[in-house]
Design a binder for these strands. Sequence first.
DNA 1: GACATATAGTATGGCGCCTAATTATGAGTC
DNA 2: GACTCATAATTAGGCGCCATACTATATGTC
Lengths: 176, 176
Amino acid sequence: MENLEHKHLAVLDEAARRGKSDTANMRLCFEVLALAAAIDRSCAARLAPYRLSEGKFVLLSLLRDLPDGLAPHELAERAGVTRATVTGLLDGLERDGFLLRHGDKDDRRKISVRLTSMGQAMAEDLFVEHSQWIGSLFAGFEPREREVFSGFLLRAWRNVEMPLDAGQTTVAGTSP
Amino acid sequence: MENLEHKHLAVLDEAARRGKSDTANMRLCFEVLALAAAIDRSCAARLAPYRLSEGKFVLLSLLRDLPDGLAPHELAERAGVTRATVTGLLDGLERDGFLLRHGDKDDRRKISVRLTSMGQAMAEDLFVEHSQWIGSLFAGFEPREREVFSGFLLRAWRNVEMPLDAGQTTVAGTSP
DNA sequence: GACATATAGTATGGCGCCTAATTATGAGTC
DNA sequence: GACTCATAATTAGGCGCCATACTATATGTC
């Protein structure tokens, strides 16, 4: 399978040149990274025409159907990014007319972020289209295949999450 | 499996709230993205102590053992990034003493980028350590498992690469 | 009521990546 | 030799993300 990123090919070449024989593991790793990168690129390309990024799309999804809006720190928490990042994303979304910041009368530190009607409509449309697209990427897999796939991912995940100084020789077993 | 990114959980929740029933596909997609993100994060954390990023590491790998160095545009090509990006990475690497830019006597547009001895030593050490780490992430997989895994990735890849306006109903089959 | 402490949001500056524009140089043509 | 065209590297400006530091406001305690 040749679906690798250029930079990873370079690393693989170097590894081969150095006589490293078991590059199959590395290759598999790079295949995962390449697939994810391709998905991210495709996602970005789909959202770009609306002046949206993936991060902005997540914020729109979070704010959809919430007339009272959410506070920036709640958005940060639910989106899994820092508050500073949310500030930046909100700046762009507000500039482009997707939402507004409303001050809180009781607590003047607080702000509630609410979609404009335009933002609401955009969130509505995009969410349906986008989630269909995401689902389509992994259509054609039988439930059993999905389980196996997911299990593979989990095994790799465990290796990644391993504490840095723990026994490096531990290996992805099949046990629960 | 709960190894998902916060932002993707938000999107999944929204999808469920909207009565979307087949979220298994989306979930699988997000699992792939989460694994890749975890790998990237871990990679960045491992390189950070040396003031290196993944992009810089690739450049070091490319320059290793090349006493005559490479031109920036060759680096860009082999690393799969733009020349402008290479300029930025080289600025950092040069500032930190990993390499030097040498002007070409014959063609004064050209530049050859060469590692310093410090850069060479760093590239040497890091490359071995880093490629071992990458390999370890997917250790514990039987060759047959790797094939299946790789096949899954390929099927998803085909769905991603599908032209935007082509039949959206096409699905990841098992056929070659 | 004054004070420390916590919280909310933002500004600042960094990195990696991009596109588009710019500067310098080389090469081919008339 | 002047012109155009191509090439090499860079700059300028943008986005998304981060960590850190700051400002304004609230709250609890003495």
